[in-house]
Design a protein around this nucleic acid. Structure first.
Length: 700
DNA sequence: GAGTTTGAAACT
DNA sequence: CAGTTTCAAACTC
């Protein structure tokens, strides 16, 4: 803690380069906008890396799916806080230097206090425990641990008192900074950065903490952070520099405290905490607002949310469930916002984002994860509700006496998805009632290996089970988004007896309606029945079809008119005489598409070709159908102009899906009798005809 | 708190 | 891929 020398020595290298970045307004701006960037850049840029990198991939990367979502989310909050921070940024830096000494003296005291408070809380034990339990990692203690503690702190502190909580956070941050100063360990910086960002996101209240952290960091690494950090709170002490999370590539010093954890562990724990924290926070908030005095509840609240997947699922559910009530209980919108934006979720999201990012990069194939990410707000909702849910559950099950209960595994050793903690990507903690639990930092290797194994089996095993439709995805089917079931369960449920009206149903539990993917029987899901979703899809499909049809017809007519004009103007012997070639050409193109993707039957049935698409990833069939259809249609429309230009009108007519409308009697002359016949029916016919073409062409 | 029900996860 | 078993949460009493 006391050695500025160490830090200075270790940090010296980085500062100069960083300062450059920091100086650039663009860099700052980017940082403000997306916390992810800075962190990532750090990790990559870092030379220390090994540690920093190792941490992310591990077990608790599960949240990956939410990547986009979170990024967006962050942006929102971030921007808010950051804008403020930007203003004060310079001040902060300056102040940081000044405060550095001051903070150092106070840090130890604060640390002790924090520890005490943390220990008191349910989760805290876990963190500390993990540290103590896992001496093996002790080699590389890093700020990450501290960060975790910090995160825990907020949750621990009763929410009612924002100021107090923020103070705690601050304290913890300072602590982190101190530790960091002391620590030379490389790679920790990243964690720090994450933590700082997380904190920022966490809640407006925490901003103070941020500042503190920044101050310290800046003090220790002023050059480093100077440009980067940023967020300062408007109201509260502006002097405190907000830390640029990004900054901290520097090696972190080893933490003297027990709390100091190894790098890996730090990351692991941090994640765990992240998940939990949100829940805690929310719960705390709710408690505070509802009843200031519910101390017991606090403990339970601390225990909060188990896992991402569960979170997501449970969240929505909990929201709509009773938990919603809790939300409403927030006296002011501000509070809600705080809880949503600032408080816990952000942290999750942060981690999630990072993890997601990593995964996304590593796993290009997982579009789902990205798709899932869509709405930060949604994520919030999900996360918060889950926390609420958890809270409720804990309070109910555990009762007040028991702090927090989480999993209750007896045979799975908490190394299977049966375990809520494991599934959520978090370590089991004391509140868990599990037996022979291996889901602990001590068994990190085992946990990672198991997780890896499970992921190998199912890459999305740790992804959120409930997928919110992203805008992009939804675009085609806005209707779906409008429907109550804009979000869907990843795989759908398989309920037989619960009618999707109980939490046995994952869809219901996740607060989402059942979808095509569900194999449930007698679905009565309050959030949307499977049948409803089907109907909605059909309707949307029809609507789309109608629109596309209209568009097409209009286009076709327009094209036909043009072509006619062209013909009249330039009567060519070539093309007019040989409509077939062009025709074929077109045909080939279209047929190919249709052939590959759409079975003729589908076309017939699904008049609404494109509309079918369902927002959710799930609808395998609808999606497939839709895609092909869309492509076909587009191709047709797009190709039309070419055809027109190069070929006679007749060909165009024949080709056009709308041909029936265009209804050119002339075409009949050409070879494609079959085509014509098909054509007569309009779109469907055309599509159907498409497949035939390929075969014809070769022969001819 | 114990027992039952339920459906996901895991296994075959 | 389907059927069965295992598992732990959700639920009931």
């Amino acid at each position: 803690m006391d050695n500025p020398q160490k830090k200075s020595s270790s940090q010296m290298e980085t500062p100069t380069p960083k300062s450059k970045f920091e100086d650039s307004p663009v860099f700052n701006y980017i940082n403000n906008l997306s916390p992810i960037e800075p962190v990532k850049s750090i990790s990559t840029a870092q030379t220390f890396s090994s540690l920093s990198f190792t941490s992310p991939p591990p077990v608790f990367t599960s949240p990956h799916a939410s990547f986009h979502r979170e990024s967006r989310f962050f942006r929102c909050h971030y921007s808010a806080d950051r804008s403020k921070a930007l203003d004060s940024k310079e001040e902060v830096v300056a102040s940081a230097d000044v405060d550095l000494n001051k903070d150092a003296t106070l840090e130890e005291e604060e640390n002790e206090e924090e520890k005490a408070s943390i220990e008191a809380s349910c989760e805290l034990p876990q963190v500390l425990k993990s540290d103590s339990q896992t001496p093996d990692r002790g080699d590389s203690p890093c700020a990450g641990d501290v960060v975790e503690e910090v995160l825990v702190d907020p949750s621990d502190t009763p929410r009612g008192d924002n100021a107090s909580s923020s103070e705690d956070v601050k304290m913890s941050l300072q602590k982190v900074v101190d530790a960091r100063e002391e620590d030379n360990t490389p790679g920790c910086g990243r964690l720090m950065a994450d933590a700082s960002e997380l904190l920022v996101f966490r809640s407006p209240n925490d901003s103070e903490a941020f500042r503190c952290l920044v101050d310290k960091i800046s003090s220790s690494e002023r050059r480093f952070c100077a440009g980067v950090k940023s967020t300062k709170e408007q109201d509260i002490s502006k002097d405190i520099p907000v830390n640029g999370s990004s900054d901290d590539n520097e090696p972190l010093a080893v933490l003297p405290n027990e709390s100091v954890s190894h790098l890996h562990r730090g990351s692991m724990r941090r994640r765990c905490l992240d998940f939990e924290v949100p829940g805690k926070r929310k719960k705390d908030i709710a408690d505070d607002q509802q009843t200031v005095c519910e101390n017991k509840a606090e403990s339970s609240s601390k225990c909060v949310v188990p896992g991402i997947g569960l979170h997501l699922n449970a969240i929505a559910m909990s929201l709509r469930d009773r938990k919603i009530n809790v939300m409403h209980e927030y006296s002011t919108s501000e509070e809600i916002q705080m809880s949503l934006t600032g408080s816990t979720t952000p942290i999750h999201s942060q981690d999630t984002v990072l993890e997601t990012l990593d995964q996304a990069e590593s796993e290009p194939g997982e579009g789902q994860a990205l798709e899932e990410a869509p709405n930060a707000l949604v994520l919030f909702e999900q996360l918060n509700p889950s926390s609420l849910k958890k809270k409720r559950r804990m309070s109910e099950q555990a009762g007040e006496g028991e702090s927090c209960k989480r999993c209750n595994c007896k045979k799975s050793k908490c190394l299977k998805l049966y375990c809520e903690c494991f599934a959520a990507g978090v370590y089991c903690i004391e509140p868990c009632s599990c037996i022979d639990c291996f889901n602990k930092p001590i068994h990190e290797d085992t946990v990672l290996a198991t997780r890896k194994q499970i992921e190998s089996r199912n890459p999305l095993a740790f992804a959120p089970k409930v997928i919110r439709n992203s805008d992009s995805i939804m675009d085609a089917s806005d209707d779906a988004s409008k429907t109550p079931a804009s979000a869907r369960h990843k795989r759908g449920c398989n309920c037989k007896k619960s009618n999707c009206l109980k939490k046995y149903c994952e869809c219901y539990q996740g607060g989402v309606g059942c979808s095509i993917n569900c194999r449930c029987e007698g679905c009565k899901n309050a959030f949307g029945r499977k049948e409803d979703s089907l109907l909605a899809i059909m309707e949307s499909k029809q609507e789309e079809d109608r629109q596309t049809y209209e568009k097409r017809t209009a286009k076709i007519q327009h094209n036909s008119d043009l072509s006619k004009e062209v013909e009249e103007q330039n009567p060519r012997s070539d093309q007019p005489s040989t409509p077939l070639p062009t025709y074929r050409h077109l045909v080939v193109h279209q047929p190919f598409l249709s052939k590959n993707r759409l079975p003729p039957t589908q076309f017939f049935l699904g008049a609404g070709s494109s509309s079918l698409r369902k927002p959710d990833n799930d609808l395998t069939q609808p999606r497939n159908e839709k895609k092909p259809l869309e492509t076909v249609i587009e191709d047709k429309t797009e190709t039309m102009p070419e055809i027109l230009t190069s070929s006679p009108i007749t060909t165009i007519k024949a080709i056009s899906p709308n041909s029936k409308r265009v209804s050119p009697p002339q075409i009949g002359s050409s070879e494609s009798g079959s085509i014509l016949g098909k054509r007569s029916n309009g779109r469907k016919l055309i599509l159907r005809s498409i497949p035939a073409f390929p075969s014809l062409n070769p022969n001819q």
